[in-house]
Design a protein around this nucleic acid. Structure first.
Length: 401
DNA sequence: ATACATACC
DNA sequence: TACTGGTATGTAT
């Protein structure tokens, strides 16, 4: 790449510059600042769940995973440099007192279900990215919210038994589904529990303090985070911005238990982008960062300065992505199937195709497993010779491992 | 179509 | 002792 760069002539560069400007102008014309996108991210999710359910772990450095690999660590452990995706035995060297807890994915899935119920209240089409993270489009909610009475924006402090959370997740989940929603939570044990649902701004049932949230986006997001914390005893962080790429960066800004809003103006967006390290952008990882750095690009402002050169050295998709980033645009690096709200027509087509493939795969796997039990190696070889390597690989692993 | 590379959680 | 595993996109051949 460096060689290529050295061979670039003034004239090529000029031509490239013109081309880049054309694309940039088109992008600029399509800029959309009308949406309010929120990225929510639970704080140290797996670790937080384990700490919640085991008081012993409070104020100890701990991580979730194994001696071979850690999924995440709590903030105490991070002070020692213990991070996600770090082998446990190395983490132990950095922090000998580190407690490593094996992962309980079923539990995390259950908690994830709880927070997703809350997400759905703000955007029924929210896009989950993993168990602990999602993108939400708050545009409509905020519009509606303007006409909401205060009572609909009033929420109670936790009413749930702390012991309940400790025993079994299924139990607490059941309890949670009944009590969920905007109307305030009922006390199982409080005297005046059932009837006096809401004295709108009046004093609410004893034992439960109340918080009223405003009508702005910030308030709506604060409310959502509040409800998550009340329901799960876990905290979340959030970013608010006119698109997903920026919302994601924002959610990282006030990390644990905070939020950050980037105003929906071109100016604010451009300011925000200027000194942003390219590595912060979703889709630019270790490798791209290295390559860009070698070309003198470490922040987004460098990106726009060097766009012409970048367009000559990188593939079209790659430099288009860079250009979007340099303009603070783009919907981030999100799998397409999650990005688009699918048309019913497409859904049907893809569904039937998927089903077909699935049944084919199932058949293959059944036969394979069966034959292998009986016939052994000979069958395996014939299968390997018959099917595409990838299919065989997947089938074998899925079915037999 | 296949293999390999990069990225994310 | 020990450096994941699942899913997706992008690039090269």
């Amino acid at each position: 790449m460096m060689l290529q760069k050295a061979r670039v002539t003034e004239q090529q560069l000029k031509k490239a510059q013109a081309q880049v400007e054309k694309v940039a102008a088109a992008l600029e014309k399509s800029r959309d600042l009308s949406r309010v996108i929120v990225h929510v991210d639970m704080d140290a999710f797996y670790a937080a769940v384990e700490m919640r359910d085991c008081p012993e772990l409070k104020d100890k450095p701990m991580a979730v995973g194994s001696m071979s690999m850690l999924s995440t660590s709590n903030y105490h452990a991070r002070k020692y440099g213990v991070r996600a995706a770090m082998p446990g035995f190395i983490a132990k060297k950095l922090c000998p007192n580190l407690v490593i807890v094996p992962a309980n994915f079923d539990k995390y899935r259950a908690v994830s279900g709880e927070i997703r119920e809350i997400f759905a209240d703000y955007d029924p089409h929210f896009q989950p990215m993993s168990l602990d993270e999602a993108y939400l489009d708050f545009t409509e909610h905020v519009e509606q919210r303007q006409h909401w009475p205060e009572s609909a924006r009033t929420h109670r402090f936790r009413a749930r038994d702390i012991a309940a959370g400790e025993t079994k997740t299924e139990l607490s989940q059941e309890a949670a589904t009944e009590e969920r929603d905007l109307s305030p939570v009922l006390f199982e044990d409080s005297p005046g529990s059932s009837p006096s649902l809401m004295g709108p701004e009046g004093v609410c049932a004893p034992g439960g303090d109340v918080e009223v949230f405003g009508t702005s986006v910030e308030e709506a997001v604060r409310e959502m985070r509040f409800r998550i914390e009340q329901k799960t005893m876990l905290t979340a962080s959030a970013g608010i911005a006119p698109n997903m790429m920026l919302a994601k960066v924002c959610s990282d800004k006030n990390k644990p238990n905070g939020q950050c809003r980037l105003p929906s103006t071109r100016e604010a967006v451009m300011d925000f982008i200027q000194n942003l390290p390219v590595r912060k952008v979703c889709g630019i990882g270790k490798v791209s960062e290295k390559m860009l750095n070698a070309l003198g690009v470490s922040t987004c402002s460098h990106l726009s300065q060097k766009m012409a050169m970048l367009s000559l050295l990188f593939s079209e998709t790659a430099w288009h992505h860079f250009l979007e980033v340099s303009l603070g645009q783009g919907s981030t690096y999100i799998p397409r199937y999650k990005r688009k709200s699918m048309s019913t027509e497409r859904t049907f087509k893809e569904l039937s195709k998927a089903e077909e493939q699935l049944s084919l795969c199932k058949e293959l796997c059944e036969d394979l497993a069966d034959d292998m039990r009986k016939g052994g190696l000979k069958v395996l070889i014939s299968v390997v010779l018959t099917f595409k390597p990838v299919s065989v690989h997947i089938c074998c692993i899925r079915r037999l491992s």
